[in-house]
Write a protein that binds this DNA or RNA. Sequence first.
DNA 1: GCGCTTTATCCGATATACGGATACGTTGTT
DNA 2: AACAACGTATCCGTATATCGGATAAAGCGC
Lengths: 270, 270
Amino acid sequence: MVQKKQNARRGGGPAGDRGPALKGVRRSLQVLEYIALNPGRATDVAAGLNVSWATLHRTLSELEQGGFVTREADTNRYSIGARMWFIGTAYLAGHKMLEAAQPYLDDAAEGGDYTVQLVERSGRLAVTLYSYQTAGEVITKSTYGYHFPLHCGSKGQVLLAYCEAEDIDEYLNGPLESLTPETVTQPKALRQRLKEIKAQGYALTIGDVQQFTGSLSAPVFDRAHQAVGAVCFITKRSALRDAAVVEAMLETLLRTAQSTSLALGWRPGG
Amino acid sequence: MVQKKQNARRGGGPAGDRGPALKGVRRSLQVLEYIALNPGRATDVAAGLNVSWATLHRTLSELEQGGFVTREADTNRYSIGARMWFIGTAYLAGHKMLEAAQPYLDDAAEGGDYTVQLVERSGRLAVTLYSYQTAGEVITKSTYGYHFPLHCGSKGQVLLAYCEAEDIDEYLNGPLESLTPETVTQPKALRQRLKEIKAQGYALTIGDVQQFTGSLSAPVFDRAHQAVGAVCFITKRSALRDAAVVEAMLETLLRTAQSTSLALGWRPGG
DNA sequence: GCGCTTTATCCGATATACGGATACGTTGTT
DNA sequence: AACAACGTATCCGTATATCGGATAAAGCGC
């Protein structure tokens, strides 16, 4: 049998690399995330992720068997399974910010006629941790399960505005999707907006996520003065035309956000 | 080139088995679920799952790098990460039963002074898909992220009652945890309860999940007359002492559950 | 300061997953 | 209706990524 020479290093590489680690694990989670974003048929997933069909098939079968994805019997379309929901919800149990914010969010929700959300950044998206919508059906889609890119909506923009400069650069270099005709997608314009937002301490956008709504968001800080999330109020587009309404919402918003920050150990100044 | 004989089977085995498939994938998800249930230190996870430390360490590192688990910097404790929440929430988007139930759940929530939930079975647990709690702080813990074994609470019992007989057997053979002193854990007694529940079409339990609350649940059926979920009303223990209150809740409950079933294509009879 | 537990990294053997090829099933088109 | 095209399922040899024992470093309690 031919013994391979110790390490047949390929010229150039700085050595070391022991090859990609845990390929299977990484791939399976990529698949899950891909399906979360665009549920659909197996081949589409394979194409979207550049994975050989055979491999993908095995992966999906395994995931399906575990209940991590479900496949619609007749159409062969895959989507996220119940077990993922179960695992995912564990994220909220013991989430410091959520726990800290809850009472204030409830207060805010009782007081006003708008949807109250607590959001957080995850990668290039603003994810909703909590949403309380009072009566008025302002949000069309199921509250959870809809997360938006950071450059869309006041909540995302707030989260982005308080990121490190290089983080912002990186984000703006990525693809900037447009959700409505009013979504701002020019990096330059966005940069300007972010600067303004950081200067004034909150954000207001109208119609850039859904044309008929607008929102108002303020950052939540932790004890290290890091922006770790945002409180967001969403309401009908028309309501935000009225300066008095905006003023009132803004006051509650800033109070809610600050109360939460305080509960997280943040202190003014510094 | 030497052609291998068709199948060079290894003597003894009934042929077929090509060894465990996708070990890594399976393990990583096991780890995630384990952490969802008991967040904690790496060694505990290794012990709990009987995985060698080296392997577990690699797995956790990979998961952490991807944001699927987070590790508390100072204490080295692991818990579910934001990305899992993101993926998990995708389960709700486009969930047929949830979509069908939503309007009725909202109605029910507006009308009464109790928490309204929609639940579903996942393995040995009843998981909450939706929860609407009106003012009264009846539920202590964060609404999501707390799922209970099927034998605890009316919701679980309803889900269990409508399972196949062998499913029930299997469940009752497993470990039956006790959440409060009032939790019923005798298989025999449970079997009796399940029979009653199925006979009357709903379940009422008091104090077997939390001592100071009780709940009332009814099943939701799909077009194939399969029980696919349950609607559950939770309220203060004392309220359920009043027969008139129970009667009123029950009416709404059954109406809500039936409306949902109808929206799913179920039809009476059969 | 000293043991003990927990965490991090190394490395060779070998079992495991990859992916091309092949076969089957299903959908849509002329 | 028959064909074409696409999507799905499965097989198998080989290369290689993964496993886990061992070793080293870092925390932690006493």
